[in-house]
Design a binder for these strands. Structure first.
Lengths: 220, 220
DNA sequence: CGTCATTTTGAGGTATTTCAACGAAGGTGG
DNA sequence: CCACCTTCGTTGAAATACCTCAAAATGACG
């Protein structure tokens, strides 16, 4: 089983308040670009509510989605000087912006906050390694199952634990999984045909057979 | 082109001396296990000389190599409480061990050292994302070219800049690239047939046609 | 309610995987 | 120092699964 994906509290309440004083809040609609590849990196961002995707467009015209981020996730730190990925909201989101210049001051005053960021960076790294394992699978259905499992964790509390909220398009899923759009569609079909997952519309799913679902996702 | 892979100095000389006082030096032969999946995480490690691989064995029996690390690289931070990957030397190596307990003290005294570690963690994250892009390619030859390009950067100074030192086995390369062992062998053959790269033995390569080599590696 | 992007479905091509057997290399013990 | 043995590497042939291309249907949005 893929471990290391428990929801991680980024910061304690005290630290969160300390940071809140320095943060700018952005209320963004769906599909809003937060920053682009190559622009100079000036801030870190924390998601209050919503979801974003970080991606790069490759020379071939293909697009690779490096990660999806959700509430309490941190992004903007995978760079040095300039951002290497573009970040865009999937759904309306509330984003907190922390300017690096003010952040270094906070770090000087309280190294333990900085340690929290280091911990969080490690969490993001584990996510990236897990992503590597997903893409390493050869079967489309198994890859899809692992992505759905990821999404399931997000709505563990919000919705029932069989309900899967899918805030992105099939195309996004394909770009994350390293599959073609058609392969994703067919994989969804097959999960339905086999009675493992049911799809209601394109942005919601429901687990029908949890045992076989977990078996699929774990069968790396 | 894949950017973000320039050799990064982990620490300034002053900081390195500060850390050296707290570090334990290990001289290890090839194939030595430094720590295993699931053991409690007590230390960070920095490579003085040598090379290591970090990997996980999946339930299916497959092995996925998450990363190769070389001189001045840092590892042991991709975890929370327990290590999630096993780390093993590829060649005889000198490894510095920094116990977390002493490290937190250092962080308290000099937050700028901690910031260096955060920066380094971001670098490792970028490497993981680059790995994602490599594995995302569908052509075995292109993936191999990107790995060779990575190895090339390591020996930029040590050997000529056409010489590629390959400290790992074909099997390791396969597990890193998400290919079968046979696919790696055939990809090597094809690079030779096309006069792009020449292999001397199994652990050394030489770039023959740099233009086409770069074109291959960039053609993501 | 119409337009447009996204999704869905079908058929064929191509790459890698798998399976099997052989050859080479490295490490160990006599 | 040599021989053995285990591991790793190499090559060939067939099968599977995904990709690509093309066209129709669905859904989103103004």
């Amino acid at each position: 089983m893929a471990k290391g994906h428990d929801p991680v509290e980024l910061l304690s309440d005290a630290h969160r308040q300390e940071l809140a004083r320095h943060a700018t809040t952005h209320i963004l609609p769906a599909r809003a670009i937060i920053y682009r590849t190559g622009s100079t990196a000036t801030s870190l961002f924390i998601i209050g509510d919503g979801a974003v995707k970080t991606f790069r467009d490759l020379p071939s015209g293909r697009r690779r989605i490096a990660a999806f981020f959700f509430a309490r996730d941190l992004f903007g730190l995978a760079e040095a000087g300039v951002y290497v990925n573009t970040v865009q909201t999937l759904i309306p989101s509330r984003i907190y912006e922390l300017e690096m210049s003010t952040l270094t001051g906070v770090f000087q005053r309280s190294p333990d906050i900085e340690l929290q960021f280091l911990t969080k960076a490690c969490h993001v790294l584990r996510e990236a390694q897990h992503h590597n394992i997903i893409v390493g699978r050869r079967d489309a259905v198994g890859r899809l199952a692992m992505l759905l499992q990821l999404l399931l964790k997000q709505n563990w509390l919000a919705t029932g634990r069989q309900e899967i909220a899918i805030p992105m398009t099939r195309s996004d899923m394909a770009n994350y999984l390293g599959l073609s759009l058609e392969a994703v569609v067919r994989a969804c079909r097959r999960l339905e045909m086999q009675g493992i997952v049911e799809f209601i519309g394109r942005h919601q799913g429901r687990i029908i057979d949890r045992r076989r679902f977990d078996a699929l996702a774990s069968n790396v």
